[in-house]
């Protein structure tokens, strides 16, 4: 029973990550306000990070850190450390992207006086 439950859990984790990503992409595509677009991009970034970490998860594994709790224990099974390192970089880069996007939004607001993307004519060509 436990095995079937954990298999279901795998699919549920993948489904949740993809669902959060799709919610963020919907927010970025369908909303009119520039700040809401940045919020949607941030939410979609979170879902993508969770999907990459869930791919590297191994059932019954522990964290890939050499500390006394790992070296003394009998369980030597380890989670894949490469996706975790990639996600660790991706989180920081996502924060940088969000900060630059917000700086651009503030500049656009000071130049045009509005945040509605239908009224900013410079974004169309």
């Amino acid at each position: 029973m436990d095995n079937a439950l954990f298999d279901l859990l795998d699919y549920a984790v993948y489904g949740t990550a993809i669902l959060v990503m799709l919610i963020g992409i919907y927010g970025a595509l369908a909303k009119k306000s520039l700040l809401k677009i940045v919020i949607g991009l941030s939410v979609s970034d979170s879902g993508l990070n969770m999907l990459i970490v869930a791919i590297g998860y191994l059932k019954g594994g522990t964290a890939p850190i050499f500390s006394p709790g790992y070296l003394d224990g009998t369980n030597k099974l380890m989670v894949d450390p490469v996706p975790q390192a990639l996600v660790l970089t991706a989180i920081v880069i996502g924060f940088g992207v969000t900060a630059v996007a917000l700086a651009l939004v503030i500049r656009l607001y000071r130049h045009h006086g509005t945040l509605n993307i239908d009224e900013i004519k410079n974004l169309k060509w």
Binding site: T62, A63, I65, S67, P68, G69, Y70, G73
Partner: peptide, 11 residues
């Protein structure tokens, strides 16, 4: 509490 459940000090 979850760190106590996993028995890892680093958590």
């Amino acid at each position: 509490l979850l760190g106590y459940m996993f028995h890892r000090y680093i958590y």
